[in-house]
Amino acid sequence: MAIPFIIDDSTSNDLLYNEPRGLVPRDYNLYPRTMFQSPPDDMPLIPESEWDARIDEQEERESSLEHIFNRLAKRLNIAVPFTHQNGAGFCWSYSTGNATMLDRAARGLPYVRLNPHAVASIIKGGADEGGWCGLSAKFLVEVGIPTEEFWQVHSRNLRQDTPEMRANAALHKLTEDWIDLKASVYDRNLTRQQLATCLLNNIPCAVDYSEWAHSICAGRWVRIENGVYGPRIMNSWLGWGDNGWGTINKNWDVDSAVALRVTGASCV
């Protein structure tokens, strides 16, 4: 088995900062935590003592989102099954868009290529500007996300914002979510436990890292070495990591995190 791609202190900056990213950290004054749904206080959390067993189980039975993603790519013979931002500063929209596609894959829904460029372009009025994952998630809740058939790939042309496009986007709405994993500064540890719980349960999450100025889609919780764990992410950069995947082993804080529990189950 090939050694998985891991981002740690030895990773060169070329692999981390050369591509455009686009994270603008969330302004909690403008966007307070109460604006989104949060996990219930009694959300069952998987304790750290169970992580090893669950991780081993996922590896043995090949049941993680990464395994599902790889099976889908193989079955459909798709070289690049995820979407990539192509130099635009729209990572904050691709993180939620790719998470939606991962959720669809896990549910066995027909493979459709969603277009996060449409979401970011509409929110930013056609400008190439940064944002944070909760912003695109809000749009996914209210409007949805169209497929590439209804919005040209990597285009920011707002003339494509038609009723037909909106109708298609509505089929891929985020209908149930935990928008805010508890990312407040005073309780980082809870965020980590919530993130681990979601990923071990195959609930994809969009995660913002301010140190990286980047938003990515986390799809799996892995053991890096004994007692050291981290998220395995699907980046939105073409030709990066293990077919888009890499493991984060950095002491980065999660600035904001969105769990995407249920998205529209339409066939188109």
Partner: peptide, 9 residues
């Protein structure tokens, strides 16, 4: 999901 939207499903 038991509460999923059934539109065009």
């Amino acid at each position: 999901d038991k509460d999923v939207s059934l539109a065009q499903i």
